[in-house]
Structures are given as structure tokens and as C-alpha cells.
């Protein structure tokens, strides 16, 4: 252990794609400042520390720990508890740790169904013994343990206490650097940290607010999937029937996606005070379906409405793409 008086930095990936790590490296030459200011004591993607090393640290040893990835299995959960114990400031870094993100879309199904598909039904699988992972397996040498795969994917704050959250899939480098500067200032010059529980590295206003497309009153007659339509430039995507989560998503990214004709996916999560980003956006979109005449028969109206809604493929996956674990829905019901 190198005791050089520098604040200690850790970063960990639980159930994630690795994009968050890349994003940190994407801050460019500033990474040198990070190395200069911090003493990296754990960062599996970049340095060779073992879990054992972390277990050996005193409690609160790590000054800043960026935790990315969702809690999908018992190993993720164990590491969450361990890093909480060893860290002064634990940050849920990126959408997976914050709200479940893509891994949490699995909450629409169950462990059994996932195993069935992945290990048995998938056309590319050759598994004559129909072997399915078991947490404990007896082998001649004794017992083998692998982490237990949970039914439900959770966010970091659903298993441990979290100090700050940096949203994004992944968080934008300029935002990461802004946050790091604040932390560095706090650690080196005694500046104040934001209040505990804050969402940092993002705005209080929506992506839509940052988006440069002019906005008009909305009436949607049909939805288009990204491949079905070349968006008209300079026109709000939502008005063109391309689902854009911009108005229901926290800004800070600079509205990158809508600027290049791709509807905002919603990765920065809901705005402050919103319990369920998916429900918010669904409710908004449903409010502007452009069907129905005043004297129209109710059933007719319902049918027309459904015809439009049918063009919205996979609404659950669309509206809850990032926020499923944190939503009011949390998961689909599992039959006992």
C-alpha cells in the first residue's frame, strides 16, 4: 500500500457494459490530472487490484468510489456492500447503477425465462446436457461456487446507501470532468461538496430544453421506428412521430441525440420529483395522439387510438429503457 497522502480513488463495474469506464477515459488529457491528484487503489478495468486487497483496506479508506453497473447477481451485491464500507463518498455512476438501465429491462421477465432462452432455446446454443448455471456445483474436488443470478435487477441505491448519482448511459465526459473538478476542489482546497443525495453532472431541466429544434403544438398520427423514417431536419422529432424522450429526460448531455436526428433515448433519467420516467412520457405521448373528432363514438375513438398506439412498437422497452429498476413498476409480476 502506497501511503503518499493523496486522496484514494476507486472505480468498479458491476452489471454493466464497460461504457462508463471508457467514458471516464474519454475525459482525455484530464485523466493525467486524475492520476496526479488521486491515488488509484482499485479499478479492475485499468489496474490490477484484487477483491482481497479491498477487503484489507480500513473502512472509509477510499475517498471517492465511482460505482457503475447494476446489481444483477450476488457478486455485484457483495461488492456494493464492500465498497460502501470502504468508501467515504460512494457515487452511483451511470444509468445502470442509478436506475438499472438496460440490464434492468430483464425485470420484464424472470431468471427462469432468461436461462431458458440463453442456455436452452437460443438457436445458436448447443447444450445437449441441458446444463443451467447453479450457484453450487459438486465436483470430485469439492464444491464450486459461482455468484447467484437474481430474479430482479436492482439499482445501487436499492442495496446500499449512495452519496451522489451521476446519470447517463454513459455519463458525458465533460460532465464527468466537471464533477471531478468539484471533488478535487473539495479534497484539495476544502471547497464544499453538493448536499448528499444530489444528482450531479446533469441539469435540473429537460433535454428538450437544450434541444435546438423549434417546438410547435403536437399531434401524433403515427409513430416511426428510427429505421422507418429519415427525420426532417430542424423539426422536433416527436412532432414527426419519432419517439423522443427529450421532454421527460434530465438534461446535461447537450441534447446530442435529437440534434443528429435520433430521438432522445432517456438515458439521463427522469427529472427531479418524477417517480416514474416511463409513465410520465407515456402519459405525455398519449395526450397528443391526434385522433378523434368531437362527435366521435367512444368505441370508434378507442379503435383509432389503438391503431396509432400499435405503431409504437415495444412501449415498455421504449419508455422504461433505462429506468425500469427505479420505476414504480420495478418489475413484471412473477407467478409463484
Amino acid at each position: 500500500m502506497n501511503e503518499n497522502g493523496k486522496p484514494k480513488f476507486g472505480m468498479y463495474w458491476a452489471s454493466s457494459c464497460g461504457g462508463c469506464e471508457i467514458s471516464v477515459l474519454n475525459i482525455g488529457e484530464h485523466i493525467l490530472t486524475v492520476d496526479e491528484v488521486f491515488d488509484v487503489v482499485f479499478w479492475p478495468v485499468a489496474t490490477d487490484f484484487k477483491y482481497e486487497d479491498v477487503r484489507g483496506y480500513p473502512d472509509g479508506y477510499i475517498d471517492l468510489c465511482l460505482f457503475n453497473g447494476a446489481i444483477r447477481n450476488s457478486e455485484n451485491e457483495e461488492m456494493a456492500h464492500l465498497l460502501r464500507q470502504k468508501s467515504k463518498v460512494l457515487v452511483a455512476f451511470g444509468s445502470c447503477a442509478y436506475e438499472g438501465c438496460i440490464p434492468a429491462l430483464a425485470n420484464f421477465t424472470s431468471r427462469e425465462a432468461i436461462f431458458q432462452t440463453v442456455y436452452l432455446d437460443s438457436p445458436s446454443v448447443d447444450n445437449p446436457g441441458r446444463v443451467i448455471p447453479q450457484p453450487v456445483t459438486a465436483v470430485p474436488e469439492g464444491q464450486l461456487h459461482i455468484p447467484e443470478f437474481y430474479n430482479t435487477v436492482k439499482s445501487l441505491d436499492q442495496v446500499v446507501d449512495v452519496d451522489y448519482t451521476i446519470p447517463g448511459c454513459p455519463p458525458e465526459p465533460h460532465q464527468i470532468w466537471a464533477v471531478l473538478q468539484v471533488v478535487v476542489a473539495a479534497l484539495t482546497q476544502g471547497a464544499e461538496l453538493p448536499p448528499k443525495g444530489s444528482i450531479i453532472g446533469a441539469k435540473e431541466t429537460a433535454v428538450c430544453d437544450e434541444c435546438l429544434h423549434p417546438k410547435s403544438e403536437k399531434k401524433i398520427f403515427r409513430f416511426y421506428r428510427p429505421y422507418e423514417k429519415v427525420p426532417e431536419p430542424g423539426v422536433c422529432l416527436l412532432e414527426q412521430g419519432i419517439v423522443c424522450m427529450g421532454p421527460a429526460t434530465r438534461g446535461g448531455c447537450g441534447a446530442l441525440c435529437p440534434q443528429v436526428g435520433m430521438g432522445c433515448r432517456g438515458c439521463y433519467g427522469p427529472l427531479g420529483g418524477v417517480a416514474d420516467q416511463g409513465a410520465r412520457m407515456l402519459s405525455a405521448v398519449a395526450s397528443v395522439i391526434g385522433v378523434g373528432e368531437p362527435e366521435m363514438d367512444e368505441r370508434m375513438l378507442e379503435r383509432e387510438f389503438e391503431t396509432v398506439m400499435d405503431t409504437l412498437v415495444d412501449p415498455a422497452g421504449t419508455f422504461y429503457r433505462f429506468s425500469m429498476a427505479h420505476s414504480l413498476l420495478k418489475r413484471a409480476k412473477i407467478k409463484d
Binding site: E204, A206, K215, E217, C236, L238, G246, V288
Partner: peptide
């Protein structure tokens, strides 16, 4: 005002036509 993104989703929903869009402030 500070939170309104000016998305205009709400603009023609009000059954009492109480909502107007302030073009200057968006």
C-alpha cells in the same frame, strides 16, 4: 417556468383553453 422545457405537449390539451405559449420565453 424554470422547469418548463417548452415542449408544447400541454398546449392543446386544456379543456378550458387556459394554457398559452409564451413565444419569447419559450
Amino acid at each position: 417556468e424554470a422547469l418548463c422545457s417548452g415542449c408544447r405537449i400541454c398546449n392543446n390539451l386544456c379543456p378550458y383553453t387556459a394554457i398559452v405559449f409564451d413565444e419569447a420565453k419559450e
